[in-house]
Design a protein around this nucleic acid. Structure first.
Lengths: 207, 207
DNA sequence: TCTCAAAGAGAATGAACATTCGTTTTTCAA
DNA sequence: TTGAAAAACGAATGTTCATTCTCTTTGAGA
């Protein structure tokens, strides 16, 4: 009985997802046709439908895998609890996070900013997509919160600061980076981080 | 010859745009049907098509009016050139800008964050929409840049800081606010600004 | 080697949708 | 009041698209 292994099944699903990602980059979710996904994947219509229940099922899969890994990348910036290492300053943390985003995009061979935009738009209108994406958003916020606590402990931020609020601001900087990449195309992790450093250094005297 | 005045024409167009905005809030651009816009507007299909060439034409009109007024609102935060007034600190500027966004949404009676998300997604995939939206994005950046220059002059930011970089960060905070409103729903202008204030105050000693 | 269940293919199907078109209603200059 | 031109209407149209269905191929186990 020729039955595909779970492994092969996962591979094929990935192949289809990758095909749809390439389409979504160009056309967004609702302007990509299944015919385009079929062609891009190199499979046939019938075949695609044996791996996914339908178009919405592929969209859900993309939303789920979405920005997975961003929260983990932020976690890595945070020194172990109880270690004597100090947290990096916020501008370094933001540079690392945005750079990680670009590296991830290059690794996947997709235009991550454009795809992120499409999935956020989908989350904004479809409660089901919102539900699958919200946990990662919460994880990203939580990672920044842990970072903020660590930054407070390290003396980088005043001790009576509220880590959750700080996490909101740091979380907010990422979509701002992505949107400006799309709309203006000129931001890079380095200059973005430098801007934050300028802002953070306050009215410090020059040299 | 019964011909509609330009004024009446503009009113009708506005009525149709408002109807489509209500649809887009729920369904996004490509899942709202013209039938839905027709019903929501209270007009007939034929009538809608005498005011707009087609669906894309309405989308373009929405993208054009988009976030108009945000850059102007930011401009208002900046003291007159040569005046002896000092610029507000960044956290106050961000609070005012985000609050203005929410006020504008309430005034228009629409869910501006959701609609902004949809238009950005559209800009990310359609060069024509990108082209009509980019100028306002540039204006917003330019307004923040002028603010940054003013903040430097006022001694709020170190004098060797680069105003363009600072503008990138401040510009980036707005979409970050909007996305977190959609995904997590908990940010408000006050707490967002307070988070920025915490971050900006650096390792200051408490009291 | 043979069998048969499952995978793959791609044409066919039917629903959904944007737009048009023929008709009716409204408006206003004469 | 009237007539003609424009606006409004909404059923009809033709296309596009997701999904299904039937047929063919594949390959693991007997």
């Amino acid at each position: 009985m020729p039955k595909i292994s779970d492994e092969h099944r996962a591979e094929k699903r990935q192949q289809i997802i990758a095909a749809m990602l390439r389409c979504v980059e160009r056309d967004g979710f609702h302007k990509t046709t299944m015919a385009a996904v079929v062609e891009e994947s190199g499979l046939s219509a019938g075949s695609v439908y044996t791996y996914f229940r339908g178009k919405n099922d592929i969209i859900r899969a993309i939303a789920e895998s979405g920005l997975t890994g961003i929260s983990a990348a932020i976690q890595r910036l945070i020194p172990e609890k109880g270690s004597d290492q100090t947290a990096p300053p916020p501008e370094q943390a933001i540079e690392a996070a945005t750079q990680h985003l670009l590296d991830l995009a290059e690794h996947l061979g997709v235009d991550l900013p454009r795809i992120a935009m499409q999935t956020w738009a989908e989350a904004a209108r479809d409660p089901e997509i919102h539900a699958v994406m919200a946990p990662e958003a919460r994880r990203i916020r939580a990672s920044w919160r842990t970072y903020a606590e660590s930054a407070i402990d390290s003396g980088l931020v005043r001790s009576d600061a509220d880590p959750e609020r700080i996490a909101m601001v740091l979380t907010g900087l990422l979509p701002g980076f992505i949107l400006q990449r799309i709309m203006l195309g000129d931001v890079t992790p380095k200059v973005y981080a430098a801007g934050l450093a300028d802002l953070l250094s306050g009215p410090g005297v020059v040299r």
